[in-house]
Design a protein around this nucleic acid. Sequence first.
DNA 1: AATGAATGAGCCTTCATTCAT
DNA 2: GATGAATGAAGGCTCATTCAT
Lengths: 193, 193, 193, 193
Amino acid sequence: MVTAQDTRQAILDAALVAFGEKGFGATTIGDVRARSGTSTGSIYHWFGSKEGIAGALYVEGLREYQTGVTAILERERDAELGVRALLEHHVLWVRDNPDLARFLLSRREIELLPESEEELADMNRELFALTSKWFRAKPALVDLPPDVLHAALLGPAQEWSRHWLGGRARSGVARTAALLGDLAWKALRKDDS
Amino acid sequence: MVTAQDTRQAILDAALVAFGEKGFGATTIGDVRARSGTSTGSIYHWFGSKEGIAGALYVEGLREYQTGVTAILERERDAELGVRALLEHHVLWVRDNPDLARFLLSRREIELLPESEEELADMNRELFALTSKWFRAKPALVDLPPDVLHAALLGPAQEWSRHWLGGRARSGVARTAALLGDLAWKALRKDDS
Amino acid sequence: MVTAQDTRQAILDAALVAFGEKGFGATTIGDVRARSGTSTGSIYHWFGSKEGIAGALYVEGLREYQTGVTAILERERDAELGVRALLEHHVLWVRDNPDLARFLLSRREIELLPESEEELADMNRELFALTSKWFRAKPALVDLPPDVLHAALLGPAQEWSRHWLGGRARSGVARTAALLGDLAWKALRKDDS
Amino acid sequence: MVTAQDTRQAILDAALVAFGEKGFGATTIGDVRARSGTSTGSIYHWFGSKEGIAGALYVEGLREYQTGVTAILERERDAELGVRALLEHHVLWVRDNPDLARFLLSRREIELLPESEEELADMNRELFALTSKWFRAKPALVDLPPDVLHAALLGPAQEWSRHWLGGRARSGVARTAALLGDLAWKALRKDDS
DNA sequence: AATGAATGAGCCTTCATTCAT
DNA sequence: GATGAATGAAGGCTCATTCAT
């Protein structure tokens, strides 16, 4: 049975692929319509605007990613295992959701609706608080300003993911996850040698 | 005296700011015309197309950035000093050329002209060769696949720069350069423990 | 008790206000739906089309207005009292039914359905016959071509009503009714000087 | 020689006719383009929006009409001759500029740009001041509130013009001008009989 | 070299209307 | 009778690019 939500999801799926192939700006509503097998009217009925689609995609995508991070932070007690798990999660998530990842990583060019922006800010604030608390509670880790910590922890994975998504990475995903884990742990553990 | 080159430069300056504010895709030739105080005709006379402006900006910007990197690679013999200098250069260059940096970092969305692409590829190949040679010659550094090395070395600086350009960084630039240098060195030195 | 007719009336009420605020052309079915608290489906169930709503509104509004005119024509035997009563009725009716008046006065832009047009033509023919007969029977009034008579009699009230509906009138309604009556009588009585 | 202003004027001419035939709302930019022999781009180059065209038309049309009124007010010293001249001017102007008149009289449905509205308000204020001064200086005319005076003076001509433009008037233009002059003079002269 | 008017393909969005539930 | 999702034609507008002066 075809329900209303199916239409909505078909539009999201089509838009994600299209955005991934041509970028948000170059994707037209006509592309999304053709690929989703729906109609212009339905797209606007459900999302109101092109930015509305991007907003929904962004919010749902980020929520998915963050669910994984939250689970790790709540589960892992050990500093090293936690750091490695976070990096592994990042890289594997990108591998498993390449279109969504491409879209999330390409953000800056899109001007989302105020409502979407607010929802995203809320989600980020929450995750940031969780992460900060987790790190502060680990004596084995160096003390760093939050912005630098974030960059040091995820920057390499982010950068490598961009390469991988661009087809320019030579190393395998699993192997890279391990390597990045090694490097992050070496960089972030408290140096008591 | 107003020379012809002044018109050209006024266009480049205006375009850089506009691209930084609204992104390449959302910037119109009209924006550039208004901001530069020139005319549509002049813009096409000097650059031929919108991509032509982006190409010129990109090539000139990258050349500037790479000049600094090349100097460091040729000057530094010591591994630790070299790594630290590369990171410091990155962060300071972004601070000193925020508009240009914003533009270079946002690349993905722009489809440059074939000629620009080729010129950029040449520059990148040359720099890559230089960098690889420099790293291979340093026994104090870990052995990593080039793509992972690149991500580990510059990822954190890249990520932090994005935050800083977005006004979301809390730490100072100089202090961050030092911290990122510490972390990169800890991560990349050969672990002889 | 909520009866079916309530839905119909809610739609008419909402449409009248909306037409008054934005004009017929600029009012969308969505506006009427939102304001009436009903649904697209119900609107089409009751009226069949946007013009259908306008037609119903127009016919009902005009009938109301004409009822008053007919009563005056049948009641008044005296020329002066009749002229004054017609003008007073016009101005007071506009005051008491501002939304309806705004709508009736703005007609030109609306293309009604053939059925509505026919019904309106019938009503107008009937009223015209009545009015002509009444005027022909009054020796105290000047002899004028019907079109000029109509313009001279109702033009000022029409014009002033437009101003009043637009919030641009300074004088009170009752006072204006009297003044317009004076002027119309002076203009239309047979000049026996 | 075809100058830039020719393009502008061709667009205005075409728009005026189109607005007259189908109304502002129902006229499309495509209609104007086809009829003017120009291009979509040119229309937007010169007027910026559909409302921009209407605004220009409105301002230029009203200016033309008001020039005639101003001339009469400055020339005529005699009350009766002035009143008759104003009415004659109104009716003849409508006959000579039917498209422009139709457009000016149909205003209410159009939402002009703020700039146009302001310019129109200025023009109206100026004319209103002139007219009021002229009337106050005539002891032979009745004393009326400005809004009622305006309605009494021009309402009949306005109403008749609407009929004439709609093809529903039976009387000739010149004859009507005289009749309306008679009636207005009878209505507005101070009644010392 | 500079200017700005002209062009027209293409895109986002609106909206009246239909129809299955 | 009521609801609201679905449809798609149509329109206003943008914008890179061209070209005559």
